[in-house]
Design a protein around this nucleic acid. Sequence first.
RNA 1: CGGGGCGUAGCUCAGCCUGGCUAGAGCGCUACGUUCGGGACGUAGAGGUCGCAUGUUCAAAUCAUGUCGCCCCGACCA
Length: 575
Amino acid sequence: MRWTQTLIPTMKETPEGAEIPSHVLMLRAGLVGQLMAGVYTYLPLGLRSLRKAERIVREEMDRAGAVELHMPALTPQELWKRTGRIEAFGNVLIQFAVRRQNKQVHMALGPTHEEVVTDLVARHINSYRQLPITLYQIQTKFRNEERPRFGVLRTSEFLMKDAYSFDTSVEGLNASYQKMYDAYCRIFSRAGLGYLAVEAESGPIGGDASHEFMVLADNGEDTVVHCAACGYAANLERAETGKRTAKPPAAGDAALKKVHTPNVGSIEQVSKLLKCRERDMLKTLVYVADGQPVAVLLRGDHEANEGKIRRAVGATKLELALPDVVERTTGAPVGFAGPIGLKVPVWADADVAAVPSAVIGANEGNYHYTGAQLSRDFQVAPDHFADLRNAEAGDPCPCCAGKLELRHAIEVGHVFKLGTKYSEALDARYLDDHEQQHAAIMGCYGIGVNRILAALIETTHDENGIIWPMALAPYEIIISPINVKEPAVAEAAEKLYGELTAAGIEVLLDDRDQRPGVKFKDADLIGIPLRVVVGGRGLKEGQLEIKWRTEPEAKMIPLAGAAAALAEMVRKAKE
RNA sequence: CGGGGCGUAGCUCAGCCUGGCUAGAGCGCUACGUUCGGGACGUAGAGGUCGCAUGUUCAAAUCAUGUCGCCCCGACCA
């Protein structure tokens, strides 16, 4: 492609509003253009990279035995009602009605396709002989994000590869899941991304085991907990901590004392008022577990982890108690709950035992206690101590002697085992070899294709611009002729361009009548892996200059046979 | 949804506080000329309903109110 015949609107300055590197560089390099908040046009250069990411995904899906189809983005709202996800998605689901022959037709733009694919399977698959099968598509998804942000990392319209497996047994599901997991590893490796596969909660989509594929990046929206020593990785919701050895509290002699804390309920305010550290306080959270209130004690500076609490308590549904329930349970308004005298089951995080003398709520409005001691002033049954909080940096690793660290990350993929939630709701059943009907056991597997690009840029750019790996580069080689008005230069550049193109290399010829500095800056900015400079100086000596985007220095190669040599370099770089 | 910031040329911004001639700069764009190995220079140009609406005023980019758009932070934790 000739630069002058395509559209690559590079920008010298950072557009107002772009802050993170991937956003800034995608705009400056002319990859994307913004239409509105969270909605972007892919310009020619960006589209080429997007297509390359897509191709890698498609090749690996096909190799893993998944079969491609294409489902509509337009869906009937009825389908979402049948699985209860109209409510679950709420405002995220883009819903609208149109009129047809004077009747309202209610539709939604697909934010994901479990419903559509399960309905499809319900219609066309009815025998165990047709299973297992994994269907996938690469398609635009629509989600009304409350707050789109970070350029193309969180958008309202995005390209997603979504795959769905249907099996007749849990073993089959596990096998299908593993195939996708392995395919994801190959995809992200081929894309040049450093990633972690982390254990994850399955979230509102339902089901059990799941993994997220995370790319560590300072601007990532997610937090992963990682142990550098053994490689343990999990997202914050899921991360376990190793055994926290509770130091026996120093023999405290402080007496329990009630103090007046008028209108001061939050941990932060109380800590300020009483001049104590948050870690010397205990907070008492009231949850409703399967309809029954329970109290949970945490150190003041720790964050509750509802998933862990739910599992520890053994509840299927757990939510924070509403203010009236808190009042009924503790006898005090929200902000003054404490463990002393509570009539409901009390659970405690492991670190609670190590707080020797704590500030706690007094279960009486506007009062707290200081000097509270476990055992002496309040009790927690030994089997009610558990890991109930989010992991923090420095916590012991659950798998080795190492320490955990917290890192920001971009989620680029997610695989999970769904079970029969959707197949039952939508009657995707098959007949087994004993003429018994069963709901198909499902898994689903998503990749944010746009995020592959953004994550790559976010992690590998330098001060001059993007640095594409061959696998994602919009062009493999850029030819930068110095002064296109010089016939010898123009001819040599054209000849090389023709030869490389004929050899199947993707070449961008910068045929603009621009000064060399402009061309070099732009070549660096758009990040083409290999730059070939055709200049009068080199030509006189029968030489071409080549420079890898990743290398600081250029080098010269003979003009004779240059096309073949360059094609070989590109081929090698692709390996 | 809550809080904050910003809307002036294609892009980045100045001017606004303290209202006053024909609204500015740099980059980019057009034409011509000189240049040509890391974002050249000269000359001449094109390009704006100062986001929009209402109000205050003799007079509004500038003040007030409203509205729309964009960006950032937060959104349960007693």
